[in-house]
Design a protein around this nucleic acid. Structure first.
Lengths: 217, 217
DNA sequence: AAATTATCGATAATATCGTATCGATATAAA
DNA sequence: TTTATATCGATACGATATTATCGATAATTT
């Protein structure tokens, strides 16, 4: 299989791939070696054709009437998303949200490994959360550089977000997973992915209120 | 202004509206009464034309050379998203994530009011987190019905997700904000909005690893 | 062995979304 | 008063994403 890391792929496709992976993991206990696009689509409520189009970008082939080889499909997705070799990450901000993220087991499935936490609260420094040790902010830049960390998880109070992001970048972070609502201003070669609860809630409340209005009593 | 709750609007537009609101709040301390699409676009790194197109669906008019009246625009967005009258919600699952969500002050801006928490852990029952009281799961269905709650926040362990969702629906919940990775199977009149960390991380790790590869050393 | 069926994969058509253009309008400046 | 400028808003265009169509293929059934 050729290297697919440089082809251009649409964002919606990238966002759907993890869900296919999830289905594969769920179905892995079944005995079958293959899985069809139809089956995947049915599990997720998608159209089979869309699943096939998405899988096409991975550069693997399925067998007509049979489907895709599950192990091959799974590792193709993981490789495509760079989830196959562990992505080591630091998390900054170990409040409720930070702790929740540290404790979230699911990240292992995504090849994300949180290997240290940082917090401005000196009382937390030296302690450990779920086996992850918490360091002082003073060490952040140095440790990023020394351990060659490329991903930083930002879970600090809004007011500190920009400042901490700059520290991360100073150390050598390339990708920032931003859990604050702050719009970070960063150099263009830095990737920022924001988890936007507001937009998610917007969709939910818009739809819910429409549903309420059209409901028959 | 006519009622805009029944017109069809694209999801990307709905997702962008909260960001415009955020800009408005940020700029509200400035003295100016009006704000232009150009200004909003500049703040967010969007194109002005896109901002105008999005605002168009709200049914309000701007003034050429001046822009939109800030207060009018803000309340039009809030009304469109049903964020103007408080949406009361229950949260089920008060672990790290649940606590983080309860403590998140930002929800007030979105018209979301978490008025009670529920947890299977009897030790938590009776306590309160950030001023929100925690009840036993036994009370969930009854209290949803009695208080006419329409939105439920699902922050329980994966294994309990489907079961709890069904309880919510039994009580009368219309919209579920799902913080678990579980794909819930629900009747079609129930709205489920999933906060999908996996898809967000997929985008981040794909882009980050591409950035790493194209970087010049 | 032949017919049937379910699937992949390539191509085409459609729909959706984002962008560009341009006239109209209102303010500010000359 | 006239001109310049910045903005809105309508229309048209282009890009992107999704869906449909159809031939090829391989397992299953008859």
């Amino acid at each position: 299989m050729q290297d697919r890391s440089n082809i251009k792929v649409s964002m919606p496709t990238i966002r759907r791939l993890p869900r296919y992976l999830q289905v594969l993991k769920q179905c892995s206990h079944e005995q079958c070696e293959f899985i069809s696009s139809t089956r995947i689509a049915a599990e997720l409520g998608f159209e089979a054709i869309q699943v096939r189009k998405d899988i096409e970008v991975l550069g693997i082939k399925g067998q007509p009437r049979i489907g895709y080889k599950m192990t091959e499909l799974a590792s193709a997705i993981e490789s495509f998303l760079s989830w196959d070799n562990d992505n080591e990450a630091f998390i900054v901000g170990v409040g409720h949200l930070g702790s929740a993220l540290i404790g979230y087991k699911g990240f292992e499935d995504y090849g994300l490994k949180i290997i240290a936490g940082f917090d401005a609260n000196e009382e937390l420094v030296g302690s450990s959360v779920n086996g992850i040790q918490i360091f002082s902010m003073d060490k952040l830049v140095e440790l990023i550089a020394r351990l060659k960390i490329h991903i930083g998880i930002l879970a600090v109070p809004d007011s500190a977000a920009q400042e901490v992001a700059e520290l991360m970048i100073a150390g050598g972070i390339i990708g920032i997973w931003n859990f604050t609502p702050v719009r970070l201003s960063v150099p263009e070669n830095i990737i920022v992915e924001r988890v936007d609860l507001a937009s998610s809630l917007a969709v939910l409340s818009r739809k819910t209120s429409r549903q309420l209005k059209t409901r028959v009593f």
